[in-house]
Design a protein around this nucleic acid. Structure first.
Lengths: 354, 354
DNA sequence: TGATGCACGTTACACGTGTAACGGTTACTC
DNA sequence: GAGTAACCGTTACACGTGTAACGTGCATCA
């Protein structure tokens, strides 16, 4: 009688955390088995629909009834421990104040992953710098990890892989050795904006750079893209970075500096930032597209509310479904060489401000 | 020799999931113990700093070295299983397209929870309706759950409590029996806006109602607040709900309807929606504050960019730290009667549009 | 009649931890 | 020299699951 089948009135164990008097905790599959009058194995077979016809319809019903009656919910940790995998897909480090575009993308991605049988989970970068955070992720033994490329080192990738992650994917730049790269080349955004401004005959181009460090991830490559495009156009265009707080005062200062530098084109980083600057320009007696052509990004509806309407770089991201399928492929063949895919397509929507 | 101390060259087990050839998986504390030449218990004592001086400094170093060398990361599931608790705090059902105010609040809350030793995790409402989702949460055996009040039934609360959650807190209205209620009474927002418009002499008040169902959670109580305030003022004011898609065409329609109904006051739900409507009014030849006074909410910087500047209802939420402390108190005394606390304070910022 | 197969359950592990209880030395005390 | 305390480490569980291997009866077949 030394089986799994513990009696209700088992003697108080001397080891382990005090269980308290009676089964006050969550009911376990053993409780269900006891109530249904079968073994724990049978409970498992029934509730997981394993091994087709191994259990008669009659006992199936008994087990289901018992489980319902007790409000049984399986213990995810125990299950993962036994199974050797968790089904968790981490979306890590994603609480940056990113706009509606990316939060919609994340939402869509979560839905798709769930449809594919995974458990998507958002984990903030609340923990300390870099490797500290990666350790915390690895403890969860996720099946796959999506992570902003910033803050992931090759060592971090190795740690995650070694801890059982079958897929490590970085979002954005730069690609990290060992991880699959889902690029969103923000330089493209800058390049498209620059090409447009140059085509409009502008040669002295200001680039709004948010001072919020969380946005550097986006702003710096955009600036780089503008620089590269200006350079390769061979028209001798000048590119001038202009730091900006997200305040009206700061915008007024920037407008003044625009005049000082005699700029004739402006990339606003964002439609929101661009609107802020456009308003400041107008308050200072200037306007768009003359003397300064202004281009934003994200193509927000709000950008069309000011007059002139804001020209903008529109970004398109793939459907979450597509990425979920990609994750499944990678999971199926974890040791394939790292992919490198560009997620984003960009196009310029020209309106009145440029 | 039937101890825990398994030899490296153990015979292939016949049970359990195939471990594959050799230790390709994540290293376990047994691996560390073997490499350091001590027992697994000692490893645990060292890495968790348990039981002060039970281990000599010399072996501590050996163990740490071995753990580093192997890149050992503890297995969260196994740890939770043994400990009987997970440290997880779920922030559930929070991927609605809520604005910068609430996403900032969530971020702050996550940071604070992490400082208090919890593991905050965001879980989308990707799973099906209601109880399906709650079951998924319960499987994780979280220590505490924050959840939007919508979509949580008393049964859901019971299930979570029964599965080990020591604190279940709802955000917003309505309060759910059995759960602690962190109210954010959106009716207040409406009430403040209505009081302002009435004070400005407006008696025919339109209320913009977004058609996006995810926003009904906010828009409906705000409308109710306006209705109640108009009623109790006893001035015979009329309140008219006006559905609005987030498009320019829809806004133009709404502006026309404003004129038809001869409205003289408008609550825009949101600064964004209010801006959209204000622009449509202006395009239709009307303006604010005459003939229509317009009030938004959220007090976004963008609201100050249009002319006239937008009046707005500013909301203030408590610091995450404060809520983290509250959670700790609730966890310490899980069977205390449910709290009911109002998180939000609102005030009207009057500008030129009203 | 005995062998064979099928239908239905059960037993006996293993997953990776944490920790109470239990040794085995060594040094110190009476 | 025997008792004893302090120090340092190990053994032996238990947490809640999933599942391969192993019985049981009972009908079918040679």
């Amino acid at each position: 009688m030394d089986s799994d089948r513990t009696e209700p009135a088992a003697p108080a164990p001397t080891h382990g955390p005090a269980p308290g008097p009676g089964p006050v905790g969550a009911p376990t599959s053993a409780d269900v088995a006891r109530l249904a009058g079968v073994s724990r194995a049978t409970v498992s077979f029934v509730l997981n629909n394993t091994a087709g016809g191994r259990v008669s319809e009659q006992t199936r019903l008994k087990v289901r009834a018992a489980a319902d009656r007790l409000g049984y919910v399986p213990h995810a940790a125990a299950r993962s421990l036994r199974a050797g995998r968790t089904g968790l897909v981490l979306l890590a480090g994603s609480t940056a104040p990113i706009g509606p575009l990316f939060s919609g993308f994340y939402r869509d991605l979560q839905d798709a992953l769930h449809r594919h049988g995974h458990t998507p989970v958002l984990l903030g970068p609340t923990v300390g710098d870099g490797d500290e955070a990666v350790r915390a992720w690895a403890e969860l033994r996720p099946t796959a990890v999506f992570c902003l490329a910033r803050g992931l080192t090759p060592d971090g990738v190795h740690l995650l892989r070694r801890s059982g992650a079958r897929a490590v994917l970085t979002l954005g730049t730069p690609p990290v050795p060992g991880a699959h790269a889902l690029l969103m080349d923000q330089r493209e955004v800058g390049a498209v904006a620059a090409a447009h401004l140059l085509e409009r005959g502008r040669r002295r181009i200001g680039v709004v750079m948010p001072t919020d460090p969380a946005l550097a991830l986006f702003s710096e490559p955009r600036l780089a893209g503008i620089r590269a495009a200006a350079e390769s156009a061979g028209l001798g265009a000048v590119v001038e970075p202009l730091p900006l707080d997200y305040t009206e005062e700061s915008a007024a200062g920037l407008a003044a500096r625009c005049r000082e530098l005699a700029l004739d084109g402006l990339f606003g980083y964002n439609d929101e930032y661009a609107m802020l600057v456009l308003r400041a320009l107008q308050d200072a007696g200037a306007d768009a597209p003359h003397p300064v052509a202004v281009v934003g990004a994200d193509d927000l509806l709000l950008g069309r509310l000011l007059r002139p309407r804001m020209s903008s770089v529109r970004m398109r991201l793939p459907a979450g479904e597509e990425l979920a399928e990609l994750v499944d492929r990678v999971i199926a063949d974890p040791d394939a060489p790292p992919l490198r895919r560009d997620l984003m397509t960009v196009e310029l929507v020209a309106r009145e401000s440029s």
